[in-house]
Design a protein around this nucleic acid. Structure first.
Length: 463
RNA sequence: UCCCGGGUAGCUCAGUCGGUAGAGCAGGUGACUGUUAAUCACCCUGUCGGGGGUUCGAAUCCCUCCCCGGGAGCCA
């Protein structure tokens, strides 16, 4: 029986002179006088395998000459050194079996470059292209690297709920999950009565697994989550999705400085992993997507991330002499243009800004000794902006309670969260990293819709 | 959601002053060739985003809606 190979391993091992079998999709066919060239791709790597089909093959006239982009085939034959430039080995076909045809009159993918906007409309076919196939492999490799990084360091993987009833970050941005009859909603005091709903109260898709991760952090020490997250914000940009994947480590006995150190190490680990395991794919991005990609990734690995406090950032912005559209003032959140200036011009590389004013940050962030700031940090990277947001959590019961009241939140909703501070509370910290933004950063892909297989954005949830 | 810029052949786009449309690529046919974004010749392809209006006449001007891109806000 002929041994079957994935093209990646065939090109790696190069068993010249051996009979082999490959299965894949035709990328292109070129005919010569007495034979044809087929380029076969099976998704195992970016590269195609060149197949030589002699005109004497049984089904040459009837089938081989009809093969076009997208057809699926099995090829058995002899691997040989290639006499021509462009490839070191090629497969001399002894047998071609056509699994499925792809009518060239209607098959949308052509032997030419397509715009990403067009490919988005055919999300069921776009992974068959070089660039989207490469993105898919990089995404898979980075997913694996995420787990490896944390597992190597003794973190436990925690599955936090997708459906949640804790609306800790503001209700307006959440998707409601309901089993109620939408054409006949039960009403109570002028509003929908969620008491009659499946969970007995209003439930939503999670916007963050952090609060639940804290529970397991304060039992297992070091944990991380890696799962889908949902935001019903009507934001239409190249770096927002309604459904995206987020990684949220949470560490006990850990302060903000350690939190920042882990985040920096994590990002560097992922970049290094991609460079070492997806070199071919990254090379494609460097050639066709973002010329500066290699230099940018090198810069991430070769230098320490700059760290400045929010207050220092404000000073730098004020001293820049720039005329920003939004005024710079202590107490106001940094705008995109401010972050851009700091990250892309002033520091020209990843930058960590920390110790933000308490007024612009959520209740759970730890209040610093100055009483004015909280132990929060954002990591900004060139081209994308915020890729990580994290903080040391408020572990002091009285301070946390005061913060809840200060922000007008309903204490009853947070009793379990307060319990974590009533019983055996410890300093702890964590952060959230947007997985798609990381892939954008590592691949150079400009639009976040290209780095997730099936993007969900306002008005778009096809496939 | 707001501000800009777009939507014309399967794809990427051109289309002047308002006179009902073109190119390249793809596809088809043939020629040539260890080719590799193959090359050469010929051929085919249109609800000009939808709707309404102005006009003798609209891809072109006006209104409106939808979609896409860039930027902003929100954030990861």
């Amino acid at each position: 029986m002929t041994p079957s190979f994935r093209i990646a391993s065939l090109l790696d091992k190069q068993p010249i002179g051996q009979a082999v079998e490959i299965n894949g999709w035709v990328r292109t066919r070129r005919d010569s006088k007495d034979f044809s060239f087929l380029e076969i791709n099976d998704g195992s790597c970016l590269r195609n395998l060149q197949v030589i089909v002699e005109a004497g093959l049984a089904n040459y006239q009837q089938e081989v000459l009809r093969l076009s982009t997208g057809c699926s085939v099995r090829v058995r034959g002899m691997l040989a050194a290639s006499p021509a430039k462009g490839q070191s080995v090629e497969l001399k076909a002894a047998e071609i079996w056509v699994y499925g045809w792809a009518d060239p009159e209607t098959y949308p993918l052509q032997k030419k470059r397509h715009s990403f906007e067009f490919l988005r409309e055919i999300a069921h076919l776009r992974p068959r292209t070089n660039s989207l196939g490469a993105v898919a492999r990089v995404r898979s490799a980075l997913s694996f690297a995420v787990h490896r990084f944390f597992q190597e360091r003794g973190f436990q993987y925690v599955h936090t709920p997708i459906i949640t009833t804790s609306d800790c970050e503001g209700a307006g941005e959440m998707f409601t999950v309901t089993a109620l009859d939408l054409d006949n909603l039960p009403r109570k005091e002028g509003r929908t009565d969620f008491g009659q709903d499946f969970f007995g109260r209003q439930a939503s898709l999670t916007v963050s697994g952090q609060l639940e991760a804290e529970i397991y952090c304060l039992a297992l020490g070091q944990v991380y989550t890696f799962g889908p997250t949902f935001r019903a914000e009507n934001s239409n940009t190249s770096r927002h999705l309604a459904e995206f994947w987020m990684i949220e480590p949470e560490m006990a006995f850990c302060d903000l400085a350690q939190d920042m150190a882990v985040a920096e190490e994590f990002i560097k680990y992922l970049v290094r992993h991609a460079r070492e395991n997806c070199a071919e794919d990254l090379n494609l991005f460097a050639g066709f997507v973002d010329k500066n990609l290699p230099a940018r990734l090198e810069a991430v690995l070769s230098q320490d991330f700059a760290r400045i406090t929010y207050s220092e950032a404000v000073e730098r912005l004020l001293a820049s002499g720039r005329n920003f559209s939004y005024p710079v003032a202590w107490g106001a959140d940094l705008q995109s243009e401010h972050e851009r200036y700091l990250c892309e011009e002033l520091f020209q590389g990843p930058l960590i800004v920390y110790d933000y004013p308490r007024e612009i940050k959520p209740f759970y962030m730890r209040v610093n000794d100055d009483g004015k700031t909280v132990a929060a940090m954002d990591i900004l990277v060139p081209g994308i902006g915020e890729i990580v947001g994290g903080s040391q959590r408020e572990e002091r019961y009285e301070v946390l309670l005061a913060r809840l009241q200060e922000l007008g939140l309903n204490q009853a909703d947070y009793e379990w969260y307060l319990d974590l501070r009533r019983y055996g509370s410890v300093p702890h910290s964590g952060f959230g990293l947007g997985f798609e933004r990381l892939i954008q950063f590592v691949s150079g892909m400009a639009n976040i819709r290209e780095v997730i297989p099936f993007p969900r954005t306002p008005g778009a949830a096809a496939f």
